[in-house]
Design a protein around this nucleic acid. Structure first.
Length: 480
RNA sequence: CGGGGCGUAGCGCAGCCCGGUAGCGCGCCUGCUUCGGGAGCAGGAGGUCGCCGGUUCAAGUCCGGCCGCCCCGACCA
């Protein structure tokens, strides 16, 4: 547990680094079933902190939590043609139960649109029932060929929002406002800058009219889709007969949205901020924000140092900080430094006999640098330090992303970039699926999004990377 | 599903060619000395060598079969 095995440096093998960090920080492990993971307490608490923040945001915007079942009748899943086709390869099916073969196989939900909208059709009668804004926290199952802890597992945890509206405009507004909500969460809590935009047809959710997405760049210069929000149009309403009577007494199908983020966000946090020492957590999502390491030689020192350490911990906790005192006497202080750095704790306070006599503690930042802090006003100082760290992590991540972003790329540049350093490549796009396909075959890069106005290049490119006239701008990257 | 590799202590591995008392590092337990950047010494616990069969006086090692896992080629929050 407190071994001194080295973490593979990122530059040597990013994948091995990622696995090492997860193992050493005790975030998760592989389960007996291929593709499944056990999320350990230190990893699960990160997810719980994410959940709490997001859940509060959903509530503030009028959404209510509910729970729909894991098992879905196969016939129900098959009602929306495009949806079934899209998920077919990833579906797990229960055929036997109670000691006999089932009359109708049950699907383990890969997502819950089908069961949700079949229930919505019973709950909605009038325009007065709209909008209906539901969220659920749940696990889902998607049989994966190439699993990776947190990033792509057969079972994962997520939230899925499902809403019903009276008009297409309202649904579109809802889908977009969720993108904004996700973006605020990712920037303010995860310190993760994202690019937002709309997906091309080939990357669109099975059954959606439009898919909006948030894309972040990891330190290996590969993109990670960190969230999606779909305007489902009336596709599911028609498949599941979700109708309401409008003010004029006419029957209309509802307009729906669905949206989600998952435990993949933990993987994003690791890959966006981690360094060769291990995990680096933004203060707002760190299970332990401050670790106090008491230092002593003699028993007399120990009593004095522990007394001060506990008092400092108390003061910090009273200001709402998550604090741990590492008072183990079988591990030397130096070893503790490595352990807590590996776990990503943002701030460490070292308190030894010298500090006690001088009325101070030594504050060490996870991202580098140490300074003495006076005991008077230490809570305020540490709080401000954490806020500063939270902000600087976002700025640093944004700087890294900008350094790995190229604009107005030509086909030659795109090919060279994807064969080399990778990163985000902005360029004109003709809108043709064959063009998109060809670039993917040649470079392994896909269009992550057609970026929202705020991210676009000014002036807009007028030629597609293929040479044809551009109808829009696109962001290419190799993706997870 | 096609190609390559691996199953030996909690983890990482050696031993296998050439059959003969199951080993190393880390971790774990006990004690003493240590303690401001991964402590040292001494003692100790821990194993159906993936499974089934065969050859042999004798199999971790040789032979046959099976199972599982990892890596590489067609999808995805």
């Amino acid at each position: 547990m407190s071994g001194k095995q080295r973490i593979t440096p990122r530059a040597t093998d990013f994948s091995a680094w990622y696995n090492d960090v997860i193992a050493r920080a005790e975030l998760a492990e592989h389960a007996p079933v291929r593709g499944c993971m056990v999320i350990r307490p230190r990893g699960y608490r990160i997810w719980e902190l994410m959940q709490r923040a997001l859940d509060d945001m959903f509530r503030e915007t009028g959404h209510e939590n509910a729970y729909f079942p894991l098992l879905i009748p196969q016939s129900l899943l098959e009602k929306e043609a495009e949806h079934v086709a899209g998920f077919a390869p990833e579906i797990a099916v229960v055929t036997h139960a109670g000691g006999k073969e089932l009359e109708e196989p049950l699907v383990l939900r890969p997502t819950s649109e089908t069961i949700v909208y079949s229930m919505f059709s019973r709950w909605i009668q009038s325009y007065r029932d709209l909008p209906l804004l539901i969220n659920q926290w749940a696990n889902v199952i998607r049989w994966e060929m190439r699993p990776r802890l947190f990033l792509r597992t057969t079972e994962f945890l997520w939230q899925e929002g499902h809403t019903a509206h009276a008009t297409d405009g309202e649904a579109e507004e809802e889908a977009l406002s969720i993108v904004g909500l996700y973006r605020r969460f990712m920037e303010d809590w995860m310190a993760l800058p994202v690019i937002t935009g709309v997906k091309t047809e080939s990357e669109r959710f099975a059954g959606a009219a439009r898919t909006f997405a948030l894309e972040a760049l990891m330190q290996d210069n590969k993109a990670l889709q960190t969230g999606t929000s779909h305007n489902l149009g009336q596709n599911f309403a028609k498949a599941f007969d979700v109708q309401f009577q409008n003010a004029d007494g006419e029957m209309e199908y509802t307009w729906n949205t669905s949206w989600g983020v998952s435990t993949r966000l933990v993987g994003a946090l690791i890959m966006a901020h981690g360094d060769d020492q291990g995990l680096v957590l933004p203060p707002k999502l760190a299970p332990t924000q401050v670790v106090i390491v008491p230092i002593w030689k003699t028993d007399g020192d120990r009593v004095a140092v522990m007394q001060v350490s506990e008092r400092v911990a108390q003061v910090l906790r009273e200001t709402g900080l998550r604090v741990e005192v590492d008072d183990r006497d079988d591990v030397k202080p130096g070893a503790k430094y490595y352990i807590w750095e590996c776990r990503g704790v943002p701030v460490r306070l070292e308190i030894g006999p010298r500090d006690v006599s001088q009325g101070q503690a030594i504050l060490v930042r996870r991202t580098g640098g140490k300074t003495p802090v006076k005991m008077d006003g230490i809570a305020e100082f540490v709080s401000e330090m954490l806020e500063l760290l939270q902000r600087s992590m976002l700025e640093d991540a944004r700087t890294r992303r900008e350094q790995s972003t190229r604009r107005n790329v030509t086909m030659e540049e795109l090919v060279a970039l994807m064969a080399g350093d990778g990163g985000f490549a902005f360029g004109g796009f003709c809108g043709k699926a064959e063009c998109e396909r060809g670039i993917k075959d040649q470079t392994q890069a896909t269009i992550r999004v057609l970026p929202d106005p705020e991210f676009r290049t000014d002036p807009a490119p007028d030629r597609c990377v293929c040479g044809d006239a551009a109808v829009t701008e696109a962001v290419w990257a190799k993706a997870y």
